[in-house]
Design a protein around this nucleic acid. Sequence first.
DNA 1: TCATTTTTTAAATGTCAAGTTAAATTTGAA
DNA 2: TTCAAATTTAACTTGACATTTAAAAAATGA
Lengths: 195, 195
Amino acid sequence: MSLREKKAEKKKKEIIQSALSIIAEKGYHATTMEDVAAKLLMTKGSVYYYFKDKQDLLFKSQKMLLEQSIQNIEEIMSKELPIIEKLQKVMVVHIEFLITERTGFAMGARPDQFFAGDQLQEIISLRQKYSHCIDKLIAQGIESGYFNKVDTKIVRNIILGAMNYVIEWYSSDGSKDKNELAKSISDYLLRILIN
Amino acid sequence: MSLREKKAEKKKKEIIQSALSIIAEKGYHATTMEDVAAKLLMTKGSVYYYFKDKQDLLFKSQKMLLEQSIQNIEEIMSKELPIIEKLQKVMVVHIEFLITERTGFAMGARPDQFFAGDQLQEIISLRQKYSHCIDKLIAQGIESGYFNKVDTKIVRNIILGAMNYVIEWYSSDGSKDKNELAKSISDYLLRILIN
DNA sequence: TCATTTTTTAAATGTCAAGTTAAATTTGAA
DNA sequence: TTCAAATTTAACTTGACATTTAAAAAATGA
C-alpha cells in the first residue's frame, strides 16, 4: 500500500470517527455531512470524495463498530479461561467498550430503521455473530454444570439489554469508575446463571 | 364538556396513536406530519389544527406513553401484595405494555436527542418518577430481608435495560406468548435479588 | 522545476418536508 | 333551515440538507 493510499485510509477512519461521535451526540438522522466535515475542519465536499454518500458513510461507521465488538469478543473466546471468568470478561469488555466509544446504539437500536437491503442484511448478520458468541458461552456453562439450566435466548437478551442500557444512564461523575461499574453489573448478571 | 370538545379530544388521541405507531416503525426523525395524517386518511393541515407543530405532537405522544406507564406501575404499587410478587407484577406489566404498544423507545432512547428545555425536563422527571418506583420496591425488599443487599441504582438499571430491550428482539412468532415471555424474563431478573 | 494526479473548496442545484394560509366544506345549534 | 363556527383541503413558501460540479490548491514524482 502506497503512502497515498495509507493517508487516504487514515482520513477515512478519521471521518468515520467523526461520524460516530456526531451520531452518538445527535442521533442518526440529525447528523449532517456538514457536521461530520466541520468537526475535522473540512468541507462536506471532501467527505464526498471519500464516501459515496451519507448512507455509505453511516453504514461503514456502524459496520466498523460492530466489527470491533466482534474482534473484542473473539479475542476473549479464544483464551483458555474457566467459563465463568470468560463470560464475565466478555461482559466487562462489552460494557467498557460501550462507555468509551459512547456510540449510543452500536448494538442497541433497530437497524431496520436505518438500513435496508444488503446493508441491513450485513448488519443483522454481524449482530447475530455477536449474539451467537454469547449463546455459546451460556451453553458451554450449562453443559459443564457451572450454570443453571436456562433458556439461552432469553438470558442472552437480558444480558445484552442490561449491558447496552448502560450508555443511557452512565455518567462519569458517578462514584464508580468504568471498570468497577462493569464488574459489578456483570456480577449481578451472573447471578441469573449461578446460584 | 360539549359534544364538540369531546370529539376534538377523541381526534387528538387518534392522532397521537397514529404518531406513536409511525414513530415505532420509522423512528422519530423520519416521521413526517404527512405520514401521521395519511394513516388517519387526513391531510397534514388537519393535524396542524389540533397540534401546534410537529414537536408539540411528538412531545405529547411521548408524554402520554410515559404517563400511561406510570399509571400502570402506581396501580400495582398501591396493592397489598408480598414484595416479591409486587416487583414481579411490575415487570410483567411493563414488558407486556412495551410489547403491545410497540413504541420502540418509550423509556429507552435518550430523550435529549429529541427534546430540549422544558419539554426535556418534563420527560426526564416522568422517567425519574418511574425509576423511583422501582427503586422503592427494591429498597423495600432489601429492608424486609426478602432481597439480597444490592446496589439499588445498578440493579434497577439492569432491570430496566433488560426489559426495554425486549422490544428489539421479541417477535410474535416465537414459541412463547407475550405473557409467558414476560413471566420468564421477570423470573430470571428476580434471581439477581433472591438466592 | 514542472507536469500530472490527487485532494479540497466553494458555490449551485435539486429535493423534500415543515410550516402557513386561505378558500371550501361540513357541522351543529338556534 | 340557516348561519356562524369548526374542520378540512390544497396550494404555496421557506429552509435545510444531500449531492454535484468546476475550479483551486496541494502533493507527487520524473
